[in-house]
Design a protein around this nucleic acid. Structure first.
Lengths: 341, 341
DNA sequence: TTCGGGAACCGAAACGTTTCGGTTCCTGTG
DNA sequence: CACAGGAACCGAAACGTTTCGGTTCCCGAA
């Protein structure tokens, strides 16, 4: 009894009009009188007509699908605070407009490359999101070569692609000012994976903010955004002859690693050293001491990215957008500089 | 210069054969001699022919896409250890077979319903994964009504849908035996959201394992799989006149919440109370004391689910599969029962 | 030598839309 | 009253495959 699908032809026949008129009527295109439009809509509803997405794709040369390929090891993905909210935001924007998201993950760079190529060759998606951009990212050239519409998320200021950004500077500046106000003069930095664009951006923001506050940069450790990386950084920094009294970490996970390591070395946080993170992951509120951090809003970023990509697909051009700044959230892992330092 | 796409017609013309022969040749169907098949393949490569997925979909009545709709609040998603690995596993299985995954999230139940309906109406996907099944889940009836092929992940034993399962029983039994061997006689349980099928399964497994070890169930608290829920459970259980000496939690997150709360009440873990979790999230290795837990393998589950769904789509029937059991991982949060208890 | 049968190949319909050029008809203007 | 112009509507091509029925041709058996 696999009931045959009701097609536009059925609607046309039943309404006594041409197929093309049904198409025009249902898509709000001109060339059909208001009265027949109403009749057609009526008939379409009666019949429960749902246009075939596949036929639309073939005819209309759009897939009504956008792609996100995540360049990340699945194990790392587990702890990533970004994607849950980001994807939810994307959907909020694209679902009402009839688009769906295809998601792919690739651990290695060449896998990611292949995924993009295949996505483009198959014309499976009408556009893609570019996240986790690297410095001089070859993927940018790739999507340009492939001619697939793309929006860059948190790219640099000179992005050749349309971009949506959340400025980290404001939050980082607030953090540095917060630390300075607490009397800290020696503020270290634990970086993220250095080839990642936003690692660079955050570190630069930190330097700029220090300069603004009249401070000179403390020691810098290159990390990798992981818990273990943060712990290793603590081992290094806190063993220095003149250890920092405060540390900014490139993300919360490494900040938490840092704190745990510090405490296991018998160094109290925030009594002896203040620690600030970045991201505002939920665990930051559970950890002891609760983490002072900079709150980012992946969901808003996703929503704007989604909106923008579809605008780009449908109109061919868009303006860059900026979501509200990341802001400082003060909790318990930062405190006044210990006396005598 | 939007170069026209090279189609099967171009290949046919260039090879001097009919379009239908090209189709047969490239899809490994009989009816074309080996020599012309080779020639056709040759020509197709020369021309860089990539069959149009859209045309294939329309003609062949398959979308080469499968769907996963996640019923979860995006904020909860952030801490969820399951989906990163699960999705990665799905992809491992489906990508080589030419399928892609569309992912959707819905915070509310009715949203999820709508998503499934739309997916089916649009024929956007050829099949779906059903995760986070509830007791008597109405979604099962929905996908059956909608006639969309579906595989259930960790469903009950009497699933009307083909299912892939990872048995939690083995791991939970091991855990209970481990606790019993440490001398514990009063083992409490902190459950998950009670309408979720796997909450029920885990609790039943716990009861069964206790019985096997000749123990009677300790107090049970209904939780919600969250950190805060675990903390609340600790507050309740540890204030009991005769508190348990060991606790099994339905997942790691609530176990970590439990431990934190216990310690802030001055009750040492594992000195005074042993705590075991479930999932084996990465944080469990970082937390102090490192968490004894049951390791699940979402990635394998994803891989098998993906394989199975595509088999189901293409052949119409499949057998249930089971991935290797979840196993106990002993770390530092469990210890011998304190003397005198 | 004839005939049957299968392998190889072909042509066209079908999938379900959108789009575009063309026809009809009505209205207003001169 | 004639005619231009535009609104409403129609028909068919196009999108790029797969599939199915039909034709050709060759080979082996009788």
């Amino acid at each position: 009894m696999a009931a045959r699908r009701v097609t536009i032809i059925d609607v046309a026949r039943r309404a006594g009009v041409a197929v093309s008129s049904v198409s025009s009527a249902l898509n709000g295109r001109p060339g059909v009188s208001e009265s027949t439009r109403e009749r057609i809509v009526q008939v379409a509803n009666e019949l429960g007509f749902v246009p075939s997405l596949r036929a639309k794709s073939l005819s209309g040369r759009r897939a009504f699908t956008v792609g996100l390929v995540v360049h990340r090891d699945p194990d790392v993905l587990e702890l990533d605070p970004f994607f849950g909210g980001f994807i939810a935001g994307i959907e909020e924007a694209i679902d009402p407009r009839g688009y769906a998201l295809v998601l792919q993950v690739g651990a290695r760079g060449d896998e990611v490359h292949q995924r993009y190529r295949k996505l483009a060759a198959d014309r499976r998606v009408d556009g893609v999101f570019m996240v986790d951009l690297e410095v001089d990212d070859p993927l940018i050239a790739l999507v340009q070569e492939l001619q697939v519409p793309a929006v860059a998320v948190n790219s640099g200021d000179d992005s050749p692609l349309p971009a949506v950004r959340q400025d980290a500077n404001a939050g980082i500046r607030e953090t540095v000012q917060h630390l300075a106000a607490l009397g800290h003069r020696r503020v270290a930095y634990v970086g993220g994976r250095p080839h990642l664009l936003h690692s660079l951006q955050r570190e630069n923001a930190w330097r700029a903010a220090l300069a603004e506050s009249g401070l000179t940069p403390g020691p810098v450790v290159t990390g990798d955004f992981t818990y273990l990386g943060g712990a290793a950084a603590a081992a290094t920094l806190l063993a220095l002859p003149d250890p920092p009294t405060a540390v900014m970490c490139a993300n919360d996970l490494s900040a938490i690693g840092f704190i745990t390591q510090a405490e296991s070395m018998g160094i109290d946080v925030p009594g002896k050293v203040s620690v600030a993170g970045f991201d505002d992951i939920q665990f930051g509120t559970y950890v002891r001491p609760a983490l002072t951090t900079v709150r980012t809003t992946p969901r808003e970023l996703g929503r704007e990215s989604g909106r923008m990509l579809i605008d780009l697909i449908e109109t061919g051009e868009v303006d860059d957008v900026t979501v509200p700044d990341a802001r400082l959230v003060v909790r318990d892992s930062t405190a006044p500089v210990p006396p005598g330092r």
